[in-house]
Design a protein around this nucleic acid. Structure first.
Lengths: 201, 201
DNA sequence: ACTGCAACTTGCACTCAGTGCAAGAATAGT
DNA sequence: ACTATTCTTGCACTGAGTGCAAGTTGCAGT
């Protein structure tokens, strides 16, 4: 697996541009008129594409508005966690894992900001967002299951996975509250501290 | 607010029966053929009702399959929590609050069992289920916001709300694993213990 | 028992998200 | 330039979901 990806060809470049154009159009229109008053046809048109093509880029209208994409965890971070590392202490290693996911969670801050703003007024978008987050929690659980062979824990995977999800969300919220400054992962220690504070009560 | 409700009239009885019939039909058909291969028309027909009436009972097909309904928290439990009780210690009071929600979360165990089984094979149902759960987390946060006036906490509402949600889910999972014996709330102490164990690592 | 009213069911027509298919267009490789 | 592969598009369609109005049913009062 080479470290540097080959230069993007015209196809890949166009694909990226079209995707961005669809997200932008979707967010703008929905921001102006609300989710239910904007059709996929309108979004596609605004981006200069057909409705049929829209669905080559996104599984659903909601996905386009949110700019949803899968997060790919760095293979090194993954391998480390699964083999019982990086430090051998579960909470600390969980932080590293969550940081690995947060790293690429917001490639385009403007779009994320807009999406997060729309979440507050559109329940269906919130539902889709939460489903996306839950998918990641599922990935946490799978990784934990694999790690268990190298380093067992007396706590079940469900609970650990949920805590990892909680830390991720808590950090993201704190990051949003800071005006999206720096990295979301920088807020992880404070999320852990909040949790510990609560558990001591 | 009287403690005993008046006897249900024919209308209310019919409403309940029809609702149950729709859930039963939905779960049976989806269990046999999968979510996407069953139409709302088929479900309604199997329950002896029209498609149009189906939507008087459920907002969506997914809701019928899951048998989703709002949980009504007992007014006493609510008032107690909001005024800073019952014990004054946040974690302990959270447990009482979550137990209050769990109390009426599964009025019909058979249906819940069937729904939970379908969750594992139908991503869209999982998404709906998670959204339902997230709605409750939102209610936790509202209650926490109100309680804050009587008894402030150094931990933010988001984090506390998420922990309450985690405890609720953890208890429900343990309850399911036990074969739905007794009450889900009986598993709350063990959920808290797991969390504490993890945080000590 | 009768009556008026409110609540509910149903059929119907419709919208729109989403899907499969095939012809045509665009890109990539030689 | 040629060929193979990938992508776009138009089209037809399905099915979830919605509004509307006519008809039916339950309820309460007389």
């Amino acid at each position: 697996m080479p470290t540097s990806a080959p230069p993007p060809n015209a196809r890949e470049r166009q694909k990226r541009e079209r995707r961005l154009a669809l997200i932008e159009a979707a967010q703008r229109l929905v921001g102006e008129r609300g989710l239910d008053d904007v059709t996929v046809e309108e979004i596609s048109s605004a981006a200069g594409l057909s409705t049929r093509t829209f669905f080559n880029y996104f599984d659903s209208k909601d996905d386009a508005v949110l700019g949803i994409q899968e997060i790919e965890l760095d293979a090194e971070v993954r391998a480390q966690f699964v083999s019982g590392g990086p430090s051998g202490r579960l909470m600390s290693d969980l932080e590293a894992l969550v940081a690995g996911f947060l790293k690429d969670a917001a490639p385009n801050i403007e779009q994320v900001e807009r999406a997060m703003r729309l979440l507050t007024s559109e329940p269906r978008l919130m539902q889709r967002h939460v489903a996306w987050h839950q998918r990641i929690v599922g990935e946490f659980e799978e990784l934990l299951s694999e790690r268990r062979k190298a380093r067992p824990s007396p706590v079940d995977d469900d609970t650990i996975g949920m805590v990892a999800g909680l830390l991720m969300r808590s950090s993201a919220l704190a990051w949003a509250r800071s005006g999206y400054e720096g990295d979301a992962a920088a807020h992880l220690p404070e999320a852990v501290a909040q949790l510990r504070l609560l558990l001591d009560d």
